[in-house]
Design a protein around this nucleic acid. Structure first.
Length: 741
DNA sequence: GAGAGGTTTGTTTTT
DNA sequence: CAAACCTCTC
């Protein structure tokens, strides 16, 4: 089947590639095959979602065909679009040195726009508005489209207005967010067909990886690009779609047959990665999903152990049990730390594992986490660089005008902002003309002039300094490094290290062969490429891999620990109200399970600290959905409180002798009341609930309100709990004290 | 305007 | 538990 997929080069091809079925292999061999058929490397375009995947594919192709690989476009959707836009965007009124806004930057802009409109930020929280805008952009809707669907809804119209402001802002300040990269490329192609022709004639053969993760605009882009030659090969697996929150639309892959003519479909169902039990367990889980075509993964690989269940009392103990098992396996088997992966749903869960690793001296590698580029000191320095490249970039300017402290505080800056709004100028322009700003103090004017002089001086330096040298100069000349000295030792050291790391990243960039080696190019990398940084973990040798399940996609490890399998964590609270979201969580669980080659561990804890508060969690429904036949208990006995034993007995034929009799643990409700007020509920003035209202933010772990009786401080609310199997509870708000069952 | 100190609020997942 | 936010004093 793989060979057939490699050699079917003409027309539209859909490869349904189950987990571990050799997807990457097919893609790389296919490229090699095309080259061997005499196709020019320049006419091949391979698109992936992550930089990691692109780099992986590049190096594998390079290994096979050597330097010919250089001319093939292998990139992510986003970097491909940047590459095109950098060349062509000027016909659309943008500067080619545009700034790329990350989620954080874009929220700052939106926050300001909400304020400018005089809207209440309680009714219009930035996160909510930006989510709406993001969703609209993913589905290629314009502000007008939003107005059209808003009807009588004032909120909807206001969001549409902010959206329109946002678009105007970006055009004026030459900034693009991640969605714009794709959407503007489409707009460019549609409005300037002569540009589209260049690209669609060039790319004779197009390959798209992880097709199930494409959203509306990515779909559109592919359609445009493949519309000339029509040789489009997409690879994907509907069971591994885990990005719907980013607009990914699984129906893109499910409807591929209808969307293109004469589609050839090839299913890869043989798995070359995992043992049979792991596949059986994963299959039994995913069969609970309805949105799938269904496929039957099989393998010739024999099973070692059943899937191993680890039950724990606390999250900390979960980490200890996991690390103990890692130790045991490294001692008994021929395995090193690098062959283990600990996966979790959210980054916040990494903490306990890090702690235990540190305590026990076990080396680990943390993937992701607080991302390098979003650290404060890194963003500060990048903001300096951005202003040098794009003086219209107000967000960055606002960030650095008083960082490090130079006596230009909020009052002075507010005056600059007001004046800028009045004259419709960028902040940088206003600062250049500081004397003209009304009410600005003499001292502030002087500071502004000095600042501009300094920036202009930096700008001259860009001519003859490399990026790393420039960064070095900036942190010294601005006094940024000096200001770090005021911080407590630990923090200072960490920030300092990060800055040094940034300089290293810049040096590496300067060395890269295919890079532009300019400041502009560096900033694009900074926005799009995640530094594969290994903060303070420089020791060589194999290390345990810690990462989210999302980050593990496409990877494989001999031993995998899938942790935190608890209701409210995995599936997360926010996913428990809709069937669609639940299915996605289930797919995520499936992805996690199928990363394992030899042994798969599943673990949960009864107690976990969340928001600095202890919570009691029921084991995840996913544990219940996996056929118990494929599960066994851990090698090391976990410390447990009495209740779970019943469940252990259910899955483990070797009973613990003095296990107290009790109903099945998985089916029982937790000991503590699942309805607990958050600490702030006590203080907040009681508000009136409405039927149908979502009050999860007010009371932890609660779903839909079904019925309300009474009002004010004496309400009775009937609520449906998705986590406890649709039982009904009555919640009574007793004055300002707390919520009672 | 800066900084200390207290208070509130929030968490998926990523380009 | 942290980071963001707010308030008060110098």
């Amino acid at each position: 089947m793989q060979l057939e997929a490699v050699q079917h080069t003409k027309g539209a091809l859909l490869v349904i590639a189950g987990a571990g079925s050799g997807k990457t292999r097919v893609l790389t061999y296919r490229v090699a095959w095309l080259l061997q058929q005499g196709i020019h490397p320049m006419s091949i375009l391979a698109i992936t979602f992550t930089n990691k995947a692109a780099a992986e594919m590049k190096s594998r192709i390079y290994d096979m065909v050597g330097t010919a690989a250089q001319d093939i476009w292998i990139s992510t959707f986003h970097s491909m679009c940047v590459r095109i836009l950098r060349r062509e965007i000027e016909i659309m009124g943008f500067n080619r040195n545009f700034t790329i806004l990350d989620a954080d930057d874009s929220k700052r802009v939106i926050k300001r726009l909400i304020e400018d409109r005089g809207l209440d930020d309680k009714r219009y929280p930035v996160s909510m508005v930006s989510e709406h805008i993001d969703r609209a952009k993913n589905s290629m809707l314009s502000p007008d489209d939003l107005h059209a669907t808003a009807g009588q809804n004032v909120l909807g119209h206001n969001i549409a207005n902010i959206f329109a402001d946002y678009e105007k802002y970006n055009l004026k300040h030459h900034s693009l967010d991640f969605n714009d990269l794709i959407n503007l490329t489409i707009k460019l192609f549609k409005e300037h067909p002569q540009v589209l022709d260049i690209y669609r004639e060039r790319f004779e053969y197009i390959l798209v990886d992880e097709y199930q993760d494409t959203n509306r605009s990515q779909y559109e882009l592919i359609r445009l690009l493949s519309s000339h030659h029509g040789n489009l090969c997409v690879v994907g697996d509907e069971d591994q779609g885990i990005y719907s929150w980013r607009g990914a639309d699984i129906s893109n892959i499910l409807n591929f047959e209808q969307d293109y003519k004469d589609v050839k479909i090839i299913k890869l169902e043989q798995n070359y990665r995992s043992t049979q039990v792991i596949l059986d367990a994963a299959n039994s889980l995913i069969s609970n999903n309805t949105q799938r075509k269904g496929k039957n993964l099989w393998t010739e690989k024999e099973s070692v152990h059943k899937v191993v269940l680890l039950e724990n009392m606390t999250a900390k103990e979960e980490a200890q049990t996991v690390i103990s098992h890692v130790r045991l396996l490294t001692e008994q088997q021929d395995l090193d730390f690098g062959q283990f992966a600990i996966l979790y749903r959210t980054h916040a869960q990494s903490r306990n594992f890090e702690d235990v690793c540190n305590e026990e001296g076990v080396p680990y590698r943390l993937v992701g986490g607080v991302r390098f580029w979003s650290r404060r000191e890194i963003k500060d320095i990048i903001a300096y660089l951005r202003v040098l490249v794009n003086p219209y970039d107000d967000v960055s300017l606002a960030r650095i005008i008083n960082v490090p402290k130079r006596g230009f505080g909020t009052t002075s800056f507010q005056r600059v902002q007001d004046f800028a709004a009045e004259l419709d100028l960028p902040y940088y322009g206003v600062l250049e003309e500081a004397d003209a700003v009304p009410d600005l103090g003499t001292r502030a004017k002087k500071i502004a002039k000095d600042f501009i002089a300094m920036m202009e001086n930096f700008r001259k330096m860009t001519q003859y300094l490399s990026v790393s040298e420039l960064i070095h100069t900036i942190v010294n000349e601005t006094g940024y490094l000096k200001e770090l000295n005021k911080l407590p030792d630990l923090e200072r050291e960490e920030r300092y290290q990060n800055i040094m790391e940034l300089i290293t990243v810049a040096r590496e960039y300067e060395k890269r062969e295919e890079a532009e080696r300019t400041l502009e190019g560096f900033l694009i990398d900074a926005a799009l490429v995640d530094a594969d940084q290994e903060e303070g973990q420089r020791e060589a040798g194999p290390r345990i891999n810690l990462m989210t399940i999302h980050a593990a996609k496409g990877l494989e490890f001999p031993v995998v620990f899938l942790t935190g399998l608890e209701e409210g964590i995995f599936p997360g609270v926010r996913s428990m109200n809709s069937e669609d979201d639940l299915e996605e969580e289930r797919r995520l669980c499936y992805v996690g399970m199928t990363r394992a080659k030899e042994i798969l561990f599943l673990s949960h804890a009864q107690t976990r600290q969340q928001y600095g508060q202890t919570n009691y969690n029921v084991p995840s429904r996913f544990l219940r959905e996996i056929d118990p036949e494929f599960i066994q208990l851990g090698f090391i006995r976990p410390k447990l409180r009495p209740q779970p034993q019943a469940f252990i007995n259910r899955v483990n034929p070797f009973k613990w002798e003095d296990a107290p009799k009790q109903d099945s643990f998985l089916d029982s409700t937790p000991k503590r009341d699942p309805i607990r007020p958050t600490s702030r509920a006590k203080k907040r003035v009681v508000e009136n609930f409405e039927a149908g209202e979502d009050i999860r933010h007010k009371i932890y772990g609660v779903g839909q309100v079904l019925e309300v009786r009474g009002s004010g401080q004496d309400q009775e609310v009937t609520v449906e709990f998705p986590s406890v199997g649709k039982k009904l509870f009555v919640v009574k708000y007793a004055g300002l004290e707390k919520v009672k069952k």
